[in-house]
Amino acid sequence: MWKWLHPYADPQRAYQLSSKLLPWFSLLAISLIGIGTVWGLLFAPTDYQQGDSYRIIFIHVPAASMSMAAYMAMASAAFVGIVWQIKSADWMAAAIAPIGAVITFIALFTGAAWGKPMWGTWWVWDARLTSELVLLFLYLGVIALYASFEDKVLAARAAGILAIVGVINIPIIKYSVEWWSSLHQGSTIKITEKSAMPDSMLYPLLINILGFGLMIGALSLVRFKAEILARNSMRPWVRELAQAKGVK
């Protein structure tokens, strides 16, 4: 049933597929983030409680939700790499890790810049903030572990195990607002019920979430391509490419 997927485990095919997908991802990501941000900053109505400071939501929520989604993507790729011994999946996991770390940092920073005017403090040791910080440390741990092995096949295996063990943190972040009494407000977007937000605020937010997701996809593809090239430097097709592009 999944037979059609197998050829894409081959590095060259994966490289070509990523090159084909990349322009679509980047174009869509740039236009969606552009539309969402301009809409959010200029056209969305001012919140009657939080004033204009709430406009940070249009980058904070996308970054926060995508930091978790990127972690899940990385852990799933690592799982595929370990269980089915598909090296391309390992490289994908290695490609996502630094991007996820930057997105997590953005989520934390924008949260702090929003917390200062609303709660009167940059940081509180609250369940959700702490677990998001732990997520950043998990990303950094995966990156550090991947970097500290000379043999990158082993490095990917080891970092993959750590990534899979760290998945336990994701539900803790997701439900921390419901489990503990928290200063952090509950989620504004609900899939099953009506969102606690008027449409004029919700649409730019959703557009930006989608845009951030696609941007992470595009960046992962670029890093994935570089990772493929670096790990296959002895293959003839990579050498041809290097001769064509690298020598100037």
């Binding site: 941000t37 900053l41 001012t46 004033g51 204009d52 400071s53 406009r55 940070i56 980058i59 904070h60 970054a63 630094p98 991007i99 930057v102 940092f105 953005i106 920073f109 924008t110 810049a113 929003w114 200062k116 005017p117 941007m215 960046l219």
Partner: peptide, 22 residues
């Protein structure tokens, strides 16, 4: 930004700065 200029532009600036570097 309704008086919240520093925080809003700080958040947006750092976000897009980080993304640009990345």
């Amino acid at each position: 930004m309704g008086g919240y200029a520093f925080f809003v532009w700080l958040a947006y600036g750092v976000t897009f700065g980080c993304l640009a570097v990345l």
